[in-house]
């Protein structure tokens, strides 16, 4: 029996402890956000946060997750309202097929958690592990910048005049 702490809720699962988190999320918990893209840690479609850091759910056995908080894209929204980052993706229409999108959002969330005002270069470097074949990257960068805008403005406002 494995206990997972997903989006602040505890779940007990009776599955092979070697099962990668991705399958547990999708099939046992019906959380569809994380996607199977490669199963090899090469594309980032499965990205979720563990201990507030982005990991590849396709290569994270549930045995390694006892007691560690897991955050998926389903856990970002508050009171059914998209989170500011999700809203920024919607505002920028930063998706085409959208298969890579949830992974993008999760990695971007980790970036903003660590660095609320990332530069363009920092965004690109941080997002490097995630692939998009539809070519939405320019919009993804824009969405991340948009989400960081309030923090950027706050920082500017607090500068001595």
């Amino acid at each position: 029996m494995i206990t997972l702490l997903v989006n602040s809720a505890l779940h007990k699962l009776d599955i092979d402890p070697a099962t990668p988190l991705l399958y547990a999320l999708r099939n046992d918990l019906s959380l569809n956000g994380a996607k199977f893209g490669c199963g090899l840690g090469q594309c980032g479609a499965c990205t979720v946060l563990v201990d507030h850091e982005p990991v590849y759910a396709c290569l994270t056995p549930v045995a390694a997750l006892e007691g560690r908080p897991i955050l998926t894209i389903e856990g970002l929204a508050e009171n059914d309202k998209p989170s500011p980052l999700q809203q920024a993706f919607i505002d920028e229409q930063a998706a085409q097929c959208g298969y890579c999108t949830a992974g993008m959002v999760m990695r971007a969330q980790a970036l903003l958690d660590h660095n609320s005002i990332p530069t363009e270069a920092e965004i690109r470097a941080y997002m490097e592990p995630n692939l998009c074949r539809c070519g939405t990257q320019v919009r993804v960068v824009r969405a991340i910048r948009r989400a960081s805008q309030p923090a950027r403005e706050a920082a500017e406002a607090s500068l001595p005049r």
Partner: peptide
Amino acid sequence: ELGATIFAGACASC
């Protein structure tokens, strides 16, 4: 066992 389980879930596919 933990090491072997981690190997099976994280490393074995490659």
